[in-house]
Amino acid sequence: MTEATDAPVRVHTEHGIATITLNQPAQRNSLSMAMLESLSGVLTDLGRDGGTRVVVLAAAGKVFCAGHDLREMHEQIDSHDFQLKLFQQCSKVMQQIVNLPKPVIARVSGVATAAGCQLVASCDLAVAERGARFATPGVNIGLFCSTPMVALSRNISRKHALEMLLTGELISAERAEQIGLINRAVASEALDETVYGMAATIAGKSGHTLRIGKEAFYRQLEMSLDQAYDYTAHVMAENMQANDAREGISAFLDKRAPDWQHR
């Protein structure tokens, strides 16, 4: 599937890997209502696309995402309804990423701030060039990054999350890797190789198994230890009945490559 080149979001799919590109570099790829609605539609379509195994979230230009469009927000500053709809739409998109039945990898080049940092934190995996920077700077303009806090606090420790939220300061890609906001910080020339190498490795697995695993991962996080083990025991027993589990185990025992049917 491919979007028009002037759309807020572009999509290109190849070898089971769909790349979503935020496509408004002149606006620093800000999450305006139009951008969020476009991104939501694309995620819905990819969720239904049986040919897509992995999604890469990238951005055009020198800024990955500068967060919400402050100019748009300021123009509607007296409209509580607009502000609520904007933040609800953003929250919907972040949850779509988490609930998408395929892994999502953030490919970060440049700066990711506020809701842009939230976007990175919401992805399952993230790789950034070493020159990338991250921040939740809302506190600097009197607007605490409360919704970005949800994704941030579920990815890094409380003290690291609160340091970012309370200071509003930029952190380096190396620091983001240290605290677990991203998986890897790499040289800019190695960014695509790393991202798409990771995506290709994942895309080579059973799509059915990936869907089961991603859903189970996020569900068990919110459970107590005994509930999590009970839930995942049922998940694994059910998974064992799947065609791809039977094929994968047979292939391992036969010392051959599995022939995934993605079911």
Score class of each variant (00 low, 15 high):
241 Q>N: 08
152 L>G: 06
56 V>A: 01
249 I>A: 12
132 A>Q: 02
195 V>K: 04
203 A>L: 02
217 F>K: 07
235 V>T: 09
55 V>Y: 07
127 V>F: 00
8 P>H: 04
259 D>L: 06
48 R>Q: 15
143 L>C: 13
41 G>D: 10
140 N>E: 11
210 L>P: 07
127 V>L: 00
1 M>L: 14
137 P>K: 13
202 I>K: 06
258 P>Y: 04
102 K>V: 07
79 S>A: 10
190 A>S: 05
211 R>P: 06
213 G>T: 10
173 A>P: 11
67 G>R: 02
124 D>E: 01
125 L>W: 12
235 V>E: 11
115 A>E: 15
189 E>W: 07
38 S>M: 00
95 Q>W: 05
77 I>H: 10
109 S>V: 02
19 T>D: 11
94 M>V: 02
22 L>Q: 13
259 D>E: 13
136 T>G: 06
188 S>Y: 01
189 E>C: 09
240 M>R: 13
160 H>W: 01
180 G>Y: 10
207 G>M: 01
173 A>D: 06
94 M>P: 01
126 A>G: 09
69 D>E: 07
162 L>E: 14
228 A>F: 11
105 I>P: 02
73 M>Y: 09
257 A>V: 03
3 E>V: 09
72 E>Y: 06
26 A>F: 13
181 L>P: 00
98 V>P: 02
182 I>N: 02
174 E>M: 12
107 R>T: 00
8 P>T: 04
216 A>D: 05
56 V>G: 11
74 H>D: 15
15 H>Y: 01
81 D>R: 13
252 F>L: 15
199 A>W: 04
151 A>C: 14
254 D>Q: 15
11 V>E: 05
70 L>T: 10
87 F>W: 12
208 H>D: 03
145 C>I: 04
22 L>I: 12
8 P>C: 10
175 R>Q: 14
101 P>D: 05
84 L>K: 12
8 P>W: 05
123 C>T: 08
150 V>D: 14
146 S>E: 15
31 L>K: 03
39 L>Q: 01
217 F>G: 06
215 E>A: 07
44 T>I: 14
184 R>K: 12
256 R>H: 07
53 R>D: 08
97 I>H: 03
47 G>S: 07
226 D>C: 06
145 C>A: 15
41 G>Q: 10
228 A>G: 10
48 R>I: 12
223 M>G: 00
202 I>R: 03
172 S>L: 04
67 G>C: 09
27 Q>W: 13
127 V>Y: 00
244 D>T: 02
84 L>W: 10
192 D>F: 00
246 R>M: 10
36 L>E: 05
257 A>L: 05
187 A>D: 09
260 W>E: 05
126 A>I: 03
218 Y>F: 15
76 Q>F: 05
206 S>V: 05
38 S>I: 03
11 V>A: 09
233 A>E: 10
51 G>M: 11
36 L>G: 04
42 V>M: 09
140 N>C: 12
50 G>L: 08
5 T>G: 07
137 P>D: 15
119 L>N: 03
176 A>P: 00
202 I>S: 04
204 G>H: 11
74 H>A: 15
201 T>C: 08
204 G>N: 14
12 H>T: 14
164 M>R: 08
179 I>T: 01
179 I>Q: 00
184 R>T: 03
54 V>R: 00
233 A>Y: 07
3 E>P: 12
181 L>C: 00
83 Q>R: 13
17 I>V: 14
27 Q>I: 09
166 L>P: 05
200 A>T: 15
